[in-house]
């Protein structure tokens, strides 16, 4: 008798713990906190017809801080529509300018080298694959491009050029100027002759085979 009461009690306890287990497990099935109604970038929207949660700007909208009044800085052209010949960015020290150039080098290596190559000679990996290209990427070391006002390079990045796409959505204006400056540096470096070096540099080149002032 005693035993069966104990076993009944045990059975009840067992049922209870099983029930609890089911409850606890089911509680874990709630997904309302896992998948909240907020939208995260790139998420599909169930609300808009085109299913895009990121909404295009209403035409004419000016985002805060994006009133682009400084025409030369944002378009590479002065008020008369002529390409600017100097970088419309102010530098307070040589160090700042050097950092600007290094930034340009970094951005150039990310966004331009696949096609234009590390030297800007048009020999990027795309050209080297030997595939049929509609137009080969430009080589920057031609007289025409060496004599182009610097605004042209900014303009090409902003609007695209021929078959080349615009990089405006991926490279910010400040960085576009940095790239333009770096392209100028590349043009100088690839068009240098011995007259551009000081006597000391020439001597060091003869002894070590390098100039000892790498850009990297």
């Amino acid at each position: 008798m005693r035993q069966s009461r104990a076993s009944r009690w045990l059975l009840r306890a067992l049922k209870l713990s099983l029930g609890l287990l089911v409850l606890v497990t089911a509680a874990g099935c709630h997904t309302d906190m896992w998948i909240q109604p907020k939208t995260v970038p790139l998420e599909e929207s169930t609300f808009y017809a085109d299913k895009s949660s990121a909404r295009p700007l209403v035409p004419g909208t000016v985002a805060r801080g994006h009133l682009e009044e400084d025409t030369p800085f944002f378009t590479g052209r002065d008020d008369n529509g002529q390409l600017v010949t100097a970088i419309p960015v102010k530098f307070n020290s040589d160090k700042e300018f050097k950092e600007f150039l290094l930034r340009g080098q970094e951005r150039f290596n990310i966004y331009c080298t696949p096609c234009h190559g590390r030297l800007g000679d048009g020999q990027g990996m795309i050209s080297k694959r030997g595939l049929a290209l509609r137009r080969p990427p430009a080589n920057y070391h031609t007289d025409r491009l060496r004599n182009m006002p610097i605004g042209h390079f900014y303009d090409v990045m902003t609007k695209g050029y021929g078959v080349m796409f615009s990089y405006a959505s991926r490279v910010e204006p400040q960085d576009r100027w940095a790239i333009a400056a770096y392209i100028r540096a590349l043009q100088l470096s690839q068009h240098a002759d011995s007259a551009d070096y000081t006597a000391a540099q020439r001597a060091s080149r003869q002894s070590t085979g390098s100039l000892g002032t790498e850009t990297q």
Partner: peptide
């Protein structure tokens, strides 16, 4: 657009 910056030219 990013894919097309290359693939408008190669493997078209």
């Amino acid at each position: 657009e990013t894919c097309m910056s290359c693939h408008s030219q190669i493997w078209t």
